[in-house]
Simulated scan of single mutants.
Amino acid sequence: MRKIILASMAAAAFSLTACSEKTQDAAADTAASAADDAAAAGDAAADAAAGAADATADAAQDAGNAVEGTVNAAGDAAAEAGDKIAEETAKAEANDKQ
Results as ranks from 00 to 15, higher is better:
residue 1 M to N: 09
residue 1 M to I: 14
residue 2 R to D: 07
residue 3 K to S: 12
residue 4 I to F: 12
residue 4 I to E: 12
residue 4 I to A: 14
residue 5 I to P: 00
residue 5 I to W: 07
residue 5 I to G: 03
residue 7 A to E: 10
residue 7 A to V: 11
residue 8 S to N: 13
residue 8 S to W: 10
residue 9 M to I: 15
residue 10 A to N: 09
residue 10 A to K: 14
residue 10 A to P: 03
residue 10 A to D: 08
residue 11 A to I: 06
residue 12 A to Y: 05
residue 12 A to S: 13
residue 13 A to P: 03
residue 13 A to H: 07
residue 13 A to R: 06
residue 14 F to G: 11
residue 14 F to C: 07
residue 15 S to H: 00
residue 15 S to M: 11
residue 16 L to G: 12
residue 18 A to L: 12
residue 19 C to N: 09
residue 19 C to W: 10
residue 20 S to Y: 12
residue 20 S to F: 15
residue 22 K to V: 14
residue 23 T to A: 15
residue 24 Q to A: 14
residue 24 Q to Y: 10
residue 25 D to K: 14
residue 25 D to I: 13
residue 26 A to G: 00
residue 26 A to S: 10
residue 27 A to Q: 05
residue 29 D to L: 13
residue 31 A to S: 09
residue 31 A to H: 02
residue 35 A to T: 07
residue 36 D to F: 05
residue 36 D to P: 02
residue 36 D to A: 15
residue 37 D to H: 10
residue 37 D to P: 00
residue 39 A to H: 04
residue 40 A to F: 12
residue 42 G to P: 00
residue 42 G to M: 11
residue 43 D to F: 09
residue 44 A to R: 07
residue 44 A to N: 08
residue 45 A to I: 08
residue 45 A to P: 04
residue 46 A to D: 05
residue 46 A to F: 08
residue 47 D to T: 06
residue 51 G to K: 05
residue 51 G to P: 03
residue 52 A to S: 11
residue 53 A to S: 12
residue 53 A to H: 03
residue 54 D to T: 01
residue 55 A to N: 01
residue 56 T to R: 03
residue 57 A to K: 03
residue 57 A to Y: 01
residue 57 A to Q: 04
residue 58 D to N: 07
residue 58 D to Q: 08
residue 60 A to D: 06
residue 61 Q to I: 15
residue 62 D to Q: 10
residue 63 A to R: 07
residue 63 A to C: 07
residue 65 N to I: 14
residue 65 N to S: 12
residue 68 E to F: 15
residue 69 G to E: 07
residue 70 T to K: 14
residue 71 V to P: 03
residue 71 V to G: 05
residue 72 N to Q: 15
residue 72 N to E: 15
residue 76 D to L: 13
residue 76 D to K: 08
residue 77 A to N: 04
residue 78 A to M: 06
residue 78 A to Q: 02
residue 78 A to V: 14
residue 79 A to L: 11
residue 83 D to W: 01
residue 83 D to V: 08
residue 84 K to E: 08
residue 84 K to R: 12
residue 85 I to E: 06
residue 85 I to Y: 06
residue 85 I to R: 03
residue 85 I to M: 11
residue 86 A to T: 13
residue 87 E to M: 06
residue 88 E to T: 04
residue 91 K to F: 02
residue 92 A to L: 14
residue 93 E to P: 01
residue 96 D to V: 06
residue 96 D to N: 00
residue 97 K to L: 08
residue 98 Q to A: 09
residue 98 Q to D: 03
